[in-house]
Computed example of a mutant assay.
Amino acid sequence: MVNAVRSHQHTETDQLFTGAPDAGVTQLYLYTPPDCYIPQRPQLQTFISRATTSGLHVWALDGDRAYFVDAAGPTTFYRGIDNLIAYNAAVAPHEQFSGFQADNEPQDHADYRTFHNGIPDTNLSHTPGSGLWQPTQAQDREMLLRSGLSIHQKASQLLHAHGLRFGAAMPWWTEAYEGEELGVRFPEHGGGMRRQSVMKHMMGLVDEYVVMSYYTDPAEAVRRVEVQAAFASGMAGVGRPRVCAAVEVTPGVGRRVSYGDTEGKNSRAVVLRDVGVIEEGLSRYAAFGGVAVHHWSAWQSMPD
């Protein structure tokens, strides 16, 4: 069953609410820019109310590489969360968001080059002057990942204080970046700094961990989620996050990455068949929570 669809457009609501049951959708992730909550409040109220009536839970979603501290910083990101909280406080329960999903990915993009794409942790330079915003390359990545975790930690605290669930969309390769996991030192709840995978730190901050395991071979998609699902399944039941896999159906992303670009795979029937394979492959993990589809407009445009 497809349990989550990330929705980026508001113009296809009729098709969404009639088609969601056939796709097995139970959660919607609605892209909500930080300053949309006030001017679009009536539309949001109507949309969420219809979703609630249809048995769907709606999460707000926002993320940007610019939210990291080596770029513009998280101020705007936090403002969006504050605006979400204010929106929920101002509307009826059936018009409220269920949670918020962050989509902040650390890899280099556009003008941002402090992650150092393509270099495993052990090959990053420790020579002073090799870094771009810290003294060394190794410190560039360490501080970037640490700041990213701090941003998610604060978001988690803000949202949980107001009864909202918190999730994160994360790259699959954090456990196998150029053959190595991405390690980082980060404060534990009991104090101190422990170095371990960024994924393992993040699992303690979120209620839902969506792995962007985009690949049109379902066996490979399963492999990209197994480490995360296994780790979460070993956590205590009360604090255990739900771990989801994901499939990409948007055209223009890349062959073998997106079903929309892969010959012989570009149909809803094939996607649902492969989703079933992914679910079967991950169902042995107690933390596994389903498969997210990105995104609804592209899904709706696919042939049957």
Rank of each mutant, 00 (worst) to 15 (best):
S267G: 08
D261M: 06
V238N: 14
S258T: 04
A246G: 09
R284M: 13
A286W: 06
V253G: 04
A269G: 07
Y285D: 04
G276H: 08
G254S: 13
R240G: 10
S258H: 10
G264T: 07
G281P: 11
R268F: 06
R255P: 12
G264V: 06
A286Q: 15
G239C: 15
D274K: 01
A230W: 09
R268L: 02
A230I: 11
A230E: 12
P241G: 09
T250I: 14
M235D: 10
Y285L: 07
E248K: 03
K265M: 09
G237T: 13
R273F: 06
E248A: 12
V271F: 05
V238K: 02
D274C: 09
D261R: 03
R284C: 14
R242D: 10
K265H: 10
V277R: 09
S258Q: 00
E263A: 13
R268M: 00
N266S: 13
K265L: 00
V257S: 00
A236H: 15
E280W: 01
R284G: 05
G234W: 08
G234C: 12
A230C: 04
V247C: 10
V270A: 07
S267F: 12
E280K: 14
V249Y: 11
Y259R: 01
G239T: 15
V275M: 03
F288C: 00
S233F: 07
E279H: 01
E248F: 08
G260W: 02
G239F: 13
T262R: 08
S258D: 04
G239P: 14
G276S: 07
R240C: 03
R256Q: 14
R242P: 04
S258W: 03
R268A: 12
L272P: 05
V270N: 06
T250E: 13
C244R: 15
E248C: 14
F288W: 09
V257Y: 01
V253T: 10
A245S: 12
T250Y: 14
F288P: 08
G281M: 06
R256T: 13
S267V: 02
R273N: 09
A232W: 01
G289C: 02
V270E: 05
G234P: 09
G289Q: 00
L272W: 14
A269E: 06
F288S: 07
G264K: 05
T250Q: 15
A286H: 08
L272M: 15
R273Q: 14
R242M: 14
S283T: 14
E279P: 02
F231I: 13
G290C: 11
T250G: 11
G254Q: 06
F231S: 07
A246E: 08
A232M: 08
E280F: 04
R273G: 08
A236I: 01
V257N: 02
V270L: 00
I278C: 04
R240I: 06
S258Y: 00
E280C: 11
G237I: 14
V238R: 15
G234M: 01
G254K: 00
Y285F: 15
A246D: 12
S258C: 01
G254W: 11
Y285W: 13
D261I: 10
R273T: 13
V238C: 09
G264L: 03
Y259N: 09
E248M: 15
I278P: 02
R284Q: 08
C244W: 13
D274Y: 05
T262E: 08
V277H: 00
F288Q: 03
R268P: 03
V238L: 10
L282T: 05
V247M: 00
E279G: 09
